[in-house]
Nucleic acid binder design. Structure first.
Lengths: 199, 199
DNA sequence: CGGCGGTGTGAACCGTGGTTAACCTCACCC
DNA sequence: GGGTGAGGTTAACCACGGTTCACACCGCCG
């Protein structure tokens, strides 16, 4: 799951294609200022290129954002499914696996977390629908696990619980900094489990 | 037509001044689409008026947003201080008071919650600084209480914990709907306390 | 060598949207 | 009853930013 010699059309972390560089820089800028507040020129400048050069790699600014959000949702859904499968049958183990996964993702990609819930509304209707569908499927993974831990709770309550746990873990971008990464991870995981299993 | 001579400069909930109507409509629209995506015309239309009419009540669109965010921060800080004072000396009681307060606020004003952390970056530097200062003071109220409950935790850890609890409670806008208000309030409060006191 | 696809540039185009200007109406008041 | 000021309206102004265009550069392949 690390660097392959890139036979498959440049998707390396070490030597990213220009397209990839743009996507990363854009994610960073979008997270800092909001997608509507950053210009195409800003994104270009961030990778050492002028604004219009972007259009050699993306059809439009909106297409850039759409691809960004779709990727995030896909990564989360795929990762969640995988972690659950690897965790065995005990719902408590599955919960811990999901929590660890989400905590790692949030700590590794605070910018993506921020963009995902701030700029979803800037997408075109069809794109927004696809992203929301992926997000919903991911949430349902959590709901299924939480439902087994709270057998007598309504699905509405379980879903609200899932969203609350996301909110807790995704608070990372707000508290970024002072605490060390492993300490933050341990703290968030502990709190998330406590919140998820409360009552 | 609607104007009612209000002894105290029109700040009624039942019969709000035009200025007040605008602020509320704007908060709603900003929450739904983001401040940069809603036009002055949209805000005007929402209160049955044309766009430029806004300028009879606000110096600019940015001034509108600034006043909105400043009020939120002030209400939170004032409310937090008051609830702590009314809760007595036991930090556990103080925590519960803060949690209940924040839960009520979040459930009563999901739009304001959304706008506050999404559009802070759209403020002018001086306005943003004032809002951040008020927010920081509110956070510090929480930190003080949490510190007494976790005597051997670093301030950085306690601050991260506070942000995580905010994230949990402020998840309301995402899970809005299906569950009844009192049920949601009870669930969020329970989870927040569990997360705040975990370990 | 010569064309060709891929990438980048500066200039120009143009819609959108915040803001201002000029004018209107009407309740209120001396 | 005419002046006044608050609050609206429409039309115009203007800056900003996404997008397109025409052109340049360059590595590569036949």
């Amino acid at each position: 799951m690390t660097s392959q010699p890139d036979s498959a059309l440049h998707s390396d972390v070490a030597n990213p294609s220009r397209r990839e560089q743009i996507l990363r820089a854009a994610a960073q800028l979008f997270a800092e200022r909001g997608s509507r507040a950053v210009g195409v020129d800003d994104v270009g400048a961030a990778v050492g290129v002028t604004g219009p050069a972007i259009y050699r790699h993306f059809a439009s600014k909106d297409a850039m954002l759409a691809e960004m959000l779709l990727r995030i949702s896909e990564r989360l859904l795929a990762g969640g499914t995988e972690r659950i499968a690897a965790a065995g049958d005990d719902p408590a183990d599955q919960l811990r696996a999901l929590v660890d996964f989400q905590v790692d993702f949030a700590l590794d990609n605070p910018a993506l977390i921020t963009v995902q819930d701030r700029d979803l509304g800037a997408l075109s209707d069809p794109d927004a629908r696809r992203v929301r569908q992926l997000q919903r499927r991911y949430v349902e993974e959590w709901v299924a696990v939480l439902a087994r831990l709270h057998p007598d709770a309504s699905t509405a309550a379980v879903r609200a619980r899932a969203h609350a746990v996301f909110g807790l873990i995704n608070s990372t971008p707000h508290s970024a900094g002072r605490l060390s990464r492993p300490a933050t991870a341990a703290l968030l995981a502990e709190m998330a489990i406590a919140a998820a299993t409360a009552r």
